[in-house]
Design a protein around this nucleic acid. Structure first.
Lengths: 192, 192
DNA sequence: TATTGTTATACTCTATAACTATA
DNA sequence: TATAGTTATAGAGTATAACAATA
């Protein structure tokens, strides 16, 4: 930052052909795409997709699209990643750190440091899984649970403020729409 | 690089208690809340807000809620912040870096480094605003514009995949719903 | 051999505090 | 005095590569 003159920031490594390919399956986020657009692949851009894109951009002019949990993080002196970790642990109970990483959308290498810091804050504890001695399970401490309760409350409040922007009919429409999306995702997951 | 016009780098001095409170207004993200829940403030948690929260959690089991642009970032060797910056610059044209920070949802202190790195990558250029000599305008280079076009394409594609999860009726419902939200946000902004 | 996590390294992101230049 | 940006610092997030223990 203070010396952009030093080096051209080699974010990209020499992309050496790596055969081992550790994979580290990260679930592919939500808006992933399979590589750069090679040749304009048919359905890449439709009137409907552009319309949705445009609407999202308009929304972005009112509230930042990056990091919807920003306010909650700041209020509690936590990072977005930490908030997500605590929320998943509170929702699902003790969880393998690998699965936790997948839920959050980070790699196994990264989750180690995240859990390290939460453990140092006395919010989370680690334990070996008795069934599979390779695996590590993370769980909330009593302090972590108390914080989770507060975070959960904040998120519910935020959801309420979001619903305030909708007429009652639109709220019902939104619920139904989301439920149908979930049903479709579930059936897709089953066939796959 | 970081200074359109040149200037000697100032030194840093011993920190002292600061009362000035620079503020740095960050737009408050999207799901902000005013402080910790003090006493359970009435409408904080309603059946509807809990229902929406639950639906979102279910969605999070299929795709990570943190960082929807993950796949696009990875494909292009960019960070989420960088993608957001490029998309806003591509959409809006040359922009004051302060406004850019607000759009992205980061502080003025942070945007400096972000633009530094994009500049080092030859994707963005800086220039002084002739009207207000304090302000700095960022704009895409030709390379940056070319990359923006690719990113835009990827996002459109991702929007299309999202719409694939919806029946045609639900797509129309979603568009209408978003348009009504935008209208409400616009009228709120006007009165405020 | 494959899988689950950790360690070491190097970079980006981010906020805080103090400063400069302009208005 | 207030505003727009930059600098310096410190800590957190992140991926890559190499490694350990278990299966």
């Amino acid at each position: 930052m203070r010396r952009p003159d030093d080096r051209p920031a080699p974010r990209v490594q020499p992309l050496a052909a790596d055969s081992e390919q550790e994979q580290d399956l990260i679930d592919e986020g939500g808006l992933a795409e399979e590589g750069l657009p090679p040749q304009v692949d048919g359905d890449a851009s439709t009137p409907e997709s552009r319309r949705l894109h445009e609407l999202v951009i308009q929304l972005g002019r009112y509230r930042s699209l990056r990091d919807p949990l920003h306010g909650i993080c700041e209020d509690n002196q936590l990072t977005p990643t930490q908030v997500h970790a605590l929320m998943w642990l509170g929702n699902d109970g003790p969880t393998h750190v690998g699965l936790l990483a997948q839920r959050i959308g980070i790699t196994k290498k990264t989750i180690t440091g995240v859990v390290d810091r939460l453990e140092a804050m006395k919010l989370v504890e680690r334990a070996r899984d008795a069934e599979d001695r390779r695996a590590v399970v993370a769980r909330l401490t009593p302090q972590g649970t108390a914080l989770y309760d507060r975070l959960n409350h904040s998120v519910n409040h935020a959801m309420g403020r979001l619903l305030d922007l909708l007429e009652p009919e639109d709220r019902e429409a939104l619920f139904g729409l989301l439920e149908r999306v979930l049903k479709r995702l579930a059936s897709r997951a089953q066939t796959a």
